[in-house]
């Protein structure tokens, strides 16, 4: 009795992930035919690491999408830029100091998320507008604290995220995988995760069953902000330096990656593993376009068009399934 049921559930999950798995495979093959260098251990390792950065942003975005109520977090890029610049201003000489700095950047992001959540739930500002306003406030705050100076000299510990542990696997990649696995387990196996999905899917039913809908929704924004704060810190460790607005593009990319991964913008349905695959799709795409020596301007245009096509097919297949 139990076994066949489990199987139907699993095949269904895989069906949601299938499009992105296929696209990843196609892009890998296409890249390999362009140049042998593309599938070198070095290049793939770098792609995986860059994707891991986006994975954090996508996970943050996914949580907010799942919480429903037209949830979206457009301040993710701003939070990342903030912690990328402000994080290295703290002393990071010892592991203890590094841990303290990490907790601080997570807390900074979480505070931004809290303000987002309160604005949306208490003042009833639409999420799109609230988080957009918040991203501007965050840029203001960052400018105020850093006076516009870039972060240049980084501690060795922070730069350590670039270290290669196994061939192709860097420290940052491991962080990304752990984060996605943890998020997926929390969503599927814990009460908190299930509550998030229920509130996202049908807030009225959730409220009538005694769930505190507003509280759960605010918590989603807090988590999103905290993860984005951490992601910014990893970004500066990866890049080696940080400038204002360096993480801007992550906002849109995180939205795209989450949707490519099968998350419903209407709330309640989605997966973090899917979001990770979506991130990989986007990074592979960028990498291939770079390899073709396409100038940056044209690259953005092509990227945008491809994104639109992918999103279009994803939303269509959703309708077909229904």
């Amino acid at each position: 009795m139990e076994w066949p049921l489990k199987r139907t559930v699993n095949t269904k999950n895989i069906r949601v992930l299938l499009p992105s798995i296929v696209v990843v495979a196609v892009l890998l093959i296409f890249g390999a035919t362009l140049s042998g260098r593309f599938i070198s251990v070095r290049n793939l390792g770098s792609i995986l690491m860059t994707a891991s950065l986006l994975v954090f942003a996508t996970t943050a975005q996914n949580i907010v999408f799942l919480s429903g109520n037209n949830g979206i977090d457009l301040s993710i890029g701003a939070v990342m830029s903030m912690t990328a610049l402000v994080g290295p201003m703290m002393p990071i000489g010892t592991p203890v100091e590094f841990a303290f700095a990490t907790l601080t950047v997570i807390a900074m992001g979480a505070v931004c998320g809290l303000l987002n959540g309160l604005g949306i739930r208490v003042l009833s500002i639409p999420p799109l507008i609230m988080t957009l306003i918040m991203s501007n406030v965050i840029y203001g705050f960052t400018l105020f604290v850093t006076k516009g100076r870039p972060a240049m000299e980084l501690s060795k510990i922070l730069l350590g995220v670039n270290k290669t542990v196994f061939p192709m696997i860097r420290v940052l990649t491991i962080c990304g995988v752990v984060a996605v696995a943890a998020a997926e387990i929390i969503l599927r196996k814990t009460r908190a995760g299930r509550k998030l999905a229920i509130v996202g899917d049908n807030p009225n039913a959730a409220g009538l069953c005694g769930l505190r809908v507003s509280l759960i929704s605010v918590a989603a924004y807090v988590c999103s902000g905290g993860i984005a704060g951490f992601a910014g810190f990893m970004l500066v460790g990866y890049a080696g330096s940080a400038i204002m607005r360096m993480a801007d593009s992550y906002t849109l990319l995180s939205v795209a990656a989450a949707i490519i991964g099968g998350t419903s913008v209407a709330g309640g349905r989605g997966s973090f593993v899917g979001g990770a695959l979506g991130s990989l799709v986007l990074i592979l795409l960028t990498s291939i376009l770079q390899m073709l020596n396409i100038p940056q301007g044209a690259r953005f245009v092509i990227q945008g068009v491809l994104l639109a096509v992918i999103l279009l097919t994803n939303t269509r297949s959703e309708k077909l399934r229904q």
Partner: peptide, 19 residues
């Protein structure tokens, strides 16, 4: 609209008020 989360399973709906 108010009683069920339609996308979820029987199990998940029943445990909704009993988490």
């Amino acid at each position: 609209a108010l009683g069920l989360v339609m996308d979820m399973t029987i199990k998940e709906n029943i445990s909704l008020a009993n988490m």
